[in-house]
């Protein structure tokens, strides 16, 4: 049975697409057949982050409208086996998604894939609702600052009231908190909310903390999911997150200020 996981946040620019790409790649690296679906119709980004923007022929809306089939539309990742992308349409808007259409596509994907990752657009409008409606689990991407936390709280409310599981009275969507852009130094200075602060407000289990890192920016710019950069702190943090998502217990890293060694202090770095 395929698991549908929505990556969502409410607020824009907190790292939903980056996280979708990194987690999807991580799941595929662990041997699980995974598809990442870009729900951000009209603001197509996932293909850029995944470095497959030149290979987009058909898109999600084409499949819904029956203008192309899934096989034609899915883009297979060249670096990682078991990883596919369903790109969004850049020329349409979010109203092009219908509940019936999305259900049909997800149903078809579920036959083939173990994990269906839905990369949600920002906001709480139709597009975001569509991305979360069919979800079994949710990764709520949050930055350690008040506006992001507030928006995540809002989205958590939507998950528990507007999803199909909520409407049918089934078990609630399993919610996970993913804290991105975490900077322990700024937390220590009191300029940023701490993991504990965010967790206290949102009150959902923590699945990962991704440190603020140049590696993420580099990865996005070069179209490489950061999980492929396994030497980077962010890459490792995402792999830990994936492992937790698969049910393993992994200690949290990168939460405290790293003490600079003697050599680093002398030579800088």
């Amino acid at each position: 049975m395929a698991k549908i996981i929505v990556v969502t946040s409410g607020k824009g620019g907190v790292g939903k697409t980056t996280s979708s790409a990194a987690i999807g790649t991580g799941l595929a690296l662990s041997g699980h057949k995974t598809v990442i679906v870009d729900f951000d119709i009209g603001l197509r980004n996932l293909d850029l982050i995944m470095g497959c923007e030149r290979r987009v022929v058909y898109d999600f809306v084409n499949v819904i409208n029956g203008e192309a089939n899934l096989k034609q539309t899915l883009i297979k990742d060249k670096r990682v086996d078991n990883l596919f992308i369903l790109p969004a349409s850049q020329t349409r808007d979010k109203d092009a998604l219908t509940k019936e259409g999305v259900e049909k596509v997800l149903h078809e994907l579920a036959k083939d894939f173990e994990f269906i990752l839905c990369d949600s657009p920002a906001g709480i409008e139709a597009g975001a609702m569509m991305a979360l409606y069919f979800a079994d689990e949710a990764v709520v991407v949050t930055n350690p600052e008040v506006s992001s936390v507030r928006d995540s709280d809002r989205i958590l409310g939507m998950l528990s009231s507007k999803s199909r599981r909520a409407e049918r009275g089934e078990d609630a969507i399993k919610e996970h908190l993913l804290l991105t852009r975490y900077n322990p130094e700024r937390v220590a200075k009191g300029e940023m909310l701490s993991v504990e602060d965010v967790q206290e407000i949102l009150a959902i289990p923590l699945i990962g903390v991704i440190p603020e890192s140049q590696a993420v920016l580099n990865a996005s710019n070069s179209g490489q999911p950061v999980t492929l950069d396994q030497d980077s702190d962010a890459g490792q943090a995402y792999l830990d997150t994936v492992s937790r998502l698969l049910g393993n217990t992994v200690d949290f890293r990168f939460l405290t200020v790293e003490k600079k060694g003697l050599l680093k202090r002398i030579f800088g770095g």
């Binding site: 709280d153 809002r154 409310g157 939507m158 528990s160």
Partner: peptide, 24 residues
């Protein structure tokens, strides 16, 4: 928990919330 943006009205009744009431 009652999340940001949610509104609960207990008409003609008392209200007990076992979780937190979020900002907003």
């Amino acid at each position: 928990n009652i999340r940001s943006g949610q509104q609960i009205y207990a008409k003609g009744a008392d209200l007990i919330v076992r979780g937190a009431v979020g900002a907003g």
